[in-house]
Nucleic acid binder design. Structure first.
Lengths: 202, 202
DNA sequence: AGTAAAATCTTTACAGTGGTAAGATGGCAT
DNA sequence: ATGCCATCTTACCACTGTAAAGATTTTACT
């Protein structure tokens, strides 16, 4: 390992790693092409060579996140009737553990959603989602899709509202000591019974 | 109305209107302080005087959106047992009619959530949300909050997934001719029965 | 081995942006 | 009429993305 060889050797991976470091440490605002280059110790134009533009870099980061989320969903070892619950929990857990990357994954105005790597990651995530819900058919019924959509929307909506600070106002109105997990479990319980029916008055 | 008087008279409102025009026409990427100033025909430093910085301008736009969404939720005239459904429909309808503003409202990293106007709008939206769900108590039970959270997460998640192009992959797998509304209604039907139970095999 | 071509990274340059500070203008209260 | 103050403009700086051209190393081919 020489001092500073002209050719880095694995600069693309190093840049992605540097970008993720910045994203976690300083947020999306601070994640610029030049900051990534500084973090990796190369000239400011180097990232553009590997990713085209900032959108390209962000897209590859999002792809990396989607792959990891998909892998976590795939590793769920639960009985079929509990898998759906655990999938929702894993989804929200990933969002809380990787807030910036998770939000970037769904910030389509900063991504190039036509990039092949993104389309492939998106497809893989969808297949895993359907499999988690126990639906393997290539042509699911509308009821099946409604079911899939509901589970995804519920988990995704909660994750988004949580990361955007909207859940705090719910917790502020909750009984003292209520945690995010308490509220999430209460939501799942309500969803099990039938979400659109008011809870039975005690 | 003179040609270009030094004092605009109502520049703050004009700037907000110009900003919204840009947001709808060109997207959030193009919504800059200078573009807003150009659109309103003033110098590029004028917006900073009224809103402090770009975050301030975006926050006031988000506040405006939240107020309108709250108003639409308030105007729902439906029987109590159908109000919950209509609220979810109105929520998604607003998101589809105002995609950029809706997404901005929940992009907390570009907003100053400590701004008094924002906190007030957020509080008003929450109160309306609780009222829509038929819960007026200042100290709702955890079950009540789980119910509220579920309805909100379901509608919010669907809206977000839709605006980010994630629903298209669901529609691609759906029976030919299925629309977004079809899928949404199927989701609501699934949620009514109990979201986490698989649909009955026909 | 030798050389041309390609890949990789740097340097240089430019337009656009947010933000600040100082100056210009005009309304308004006294 | 005068002075204060809100409002808006001008000037400036640091930073960013992006493109173009140059420097350096690896690879391919004969």
């Amino acid at each position: 390992m020489k001092t500073t060889p002209y050719h880095h050797g694995a600069l693309r991976e190093a840049l992605l790693s540097a970008a993720e470091t910045i994203l976690r440490r300083d947020g999306l605002q601070a994640l610029t092409l030049r900051a990534t280059a500084r973090e990796a110790g190369v000239s400011h134009a180097a990232p553009a060579y590997h990713f085209g533009d900032l959108t390209g870099l962000l897209t590859e980061l999002a792809v990396s996140g989607m792959q990891r989320l998909t892998a976590e969903m795939r590793d769920i070892k639960a009985s079929p009737d509990r898998r759906v619950w655990d999938a929702a929990r894993a989804y929200v857990r990933f969002a809380r553990a990787n807030p910036a990357i998770f939000q970037l994954m769904f910030q389509s105005d900063r991504l190039d959603v036509t990039r092949p790597s993104f389309e492939e990651a998106r497809r893989g995530a969808f297949l895993q989602l359907a499999r988690t819900r126990g639906i393997d058919s290539p042509h699911p019924s509308l009821d099946d899709l409604g079911h899939i959509t509901g589970g995804w929307s519920l988990a995704h909506g909660f994750a988004m509202l949580l990361l955007n600070g909207r859940v705090s106002i719910l917790l502020a109105a909750a009984p003292p000591g209520t945690t995010v997990d308490d509220l999430f479990e209460a939501m799942l319980a309500s969803a099990e019974k039938g979400l659109l029916h008011p809870p039975e008055p005690a």
